[in-house]
Amino acid sequence: MPITRRSALAAATLALPAAAAAQARGWPNRPVRIVIPYAPGGPVEIPGRFIAEHLAARLGQPFVVETRPGAGGALGTKQVIGTTDQHTLLMVTGAVAIQPAVQPDIGYDPVAELTPISLVSEASMGFMVRPSAAFRDLPGLIAAAKAAPGRITYGSSGNGTTTHMAAALFGARAGITWQHVPYRGGGQLISGFLAGDVDVMSGDLATLLPHVREGRGVLLAVTTPDRVPVVPDVPSITEVVPGTGIAIWFGLFAPRNFPEDATARLVAEFAPLRSGSPLGERMAAAGGRLLLTGPADLSERLRRELPLWRQVVADAGIRPE
C-alpha cells in the first residue's frame, strides 16, 4: 500500500502516545527544577530540599530547588505553568487554593493548569504574642479586639498566604475586627514581630516553636481542629470559636500534560519516606505530619478548598488585589 500524506499523519499520530510513554519511562533524562514560589527560608523549603535530595539519589539526576517569590506565590506558579520541558515541578503551600480568591485576575486555573503529584505534608499554624502582651489567651484577644475594633494588629507572611487566611477566618467567625499587616515572607515577619511592630503573629509552628521555647513568644492557640502533641497544653482555636480550624499543607505539582508515568514514578519513589524517615520525624517535631499520599488526595484538597477561601475572603471583607 503506497504511503500517502494522510496515512503518514495517521501513523505519526498513533505513535505519539508510545513516544510519550517511552520518554516518561526514561524520565528524568536531565536535571529537574523544583520551584518554590516564596521567599527563601520559609517552611516549605524543609520538605522541598529533603525531597529534592532523596529524588536525586534515587533517580540519578540533580533535583535543584529554586525560590521564585512574588505575588503571594502566583509569580512562581505562573512560571511553572508556562514551562513545557517536563522537568519542572512546583512545591507550594495551600495558598495555591487561596490566591484565585484574593487575585481574581490571577491569570491561571490551578485545577486545569497544574498536574497534582502528591500532597506532601500538613501542619498546624499558631497565633503568638510577646510575653509582655496584655492578653495571653484567645478570650483575652477577642475581648481586646472588641473593645477597640481595628486596633489589634496581626502579622502574616504575606497577603493571601495560609497564615493570613487562618487569622482572617478566625477573625470573621469570632466577630472581631483586627488589622492585617502582611510581610514579605516568614523571616521578615519574625523580625517585625520581635521588634514589636505587630501585636499577634500568625505563623506555622515550625517557625513559632523556637521562639516559644526560648521565651520570646507565647502561643495563644494552634489552628488545627485538634490540639497538637508537641504542645498539648495549647488549645485549638476551635475550642473557643468552632469552625475555624485549618492546617497549612504543602503539595507537589507539575505543569499540565505532565506524563502519567513520570507522576507514578515520583510517587513510587516517595514510598521509603512514608514511615520512619528523618523528614517524617522532623515534621512531627514541628507539629506536622508527612503524607506523600499521591495525586488523588492533593487534587481533592485543592478542589475542596477553592470555594472555602472564596467564602472567607467575602466574609472577612478582604479586598481583592
Rank of each mutant, 00 (worst) to 15 (best):
D197S: 13
A18R: 10
G26Y: 03
A56M: 02
G187I: 05
A286I: 01
S277C: 12
P242C: 06
P182C: 06
A195W: 05
R30T: 03
S132V: 11
I176P: 01
R216H: 15
D315R: 15
V241R: 04
N29R: 08
G126A: 14
I246L: 15
I176S: 04
D85L: 10
A71F: 11
W178F: 11
V212R: 09
L208K: 07
I3L: 11
I81W: 09
A284L: 11
L291A: 12
S277A: 13
A112T: 06
A57D: 14
R68L: 06
L169D: 01
S157V: 08
P210C: 07
I36M: 14
P232D: 13
I51T: 08
D226F: 11
Q23L: 11
T67K: 10
L75V: 09
R6I: 10
P255M: 06
P104M: 02
A22H: 12
R274F: 10
V267N: 10
A112D: 12
G186D: 13
V200E: 09
G294P: 01
V267F: 12
G26P: 00
A144D: 05
L298S: 07
P320C: 03
I318S: 03
F258H: 07
A147P: 02
A174T: 00
L208C: 10
V35R: 15
P182S: 10
L308V: 14
T93G: 15
R304P: 00
Y108K: 07
G192Y: 07
E214W: 02
L302R: 12
L59P: 05
G72H: 05
I248N: 15
F50R: 02
T244N: 02
R130K: 15
T153Y: 09
A316P: 00
L114G: 03
G26M: 05
P62L: 04
A134K: 10
R25L: 14
N159G: 14
A316W: 09
P116I: 01
R151I: 04
L169C: 01
N257A: 14
G42H: 13
G160L: 04
A57Y: 03
D226A: 15
P278M: 04
L266G: 09
G287I: 05
A264I: 01
D109C: 06
G158R: 02
S202F: 05
R274Q: 15
T88K: 13
L266S: 06
L306G: 11
M165P: 00
Q103S: 12
R319T: 10
A71P: 01
L16A: 11
R173C: 01
F127N: 04
E214H: 13
V267P: 09
V212E: 12
D109V: 05
P104C: 03
L302P: 02
A284D: 12
G26V: 01
L290S: 12
G107N: 03
V228G: 08
H54Q: 13
P295G: 04
A56S: 15
Q311C: 05
G82L: 06
V65N: 08
S157A: 15
L252T: 00
L141C: 10
Y38W: 08
L9P: 01
L169S: 12
V92Y: 03
P272A: 11
G73E: 09
T84M: 06
V234N: 11
M201N: 04
F127H: 09
M165E: 10
F170M: 10
A8R: 13
L90K: 11
Q179T: 14
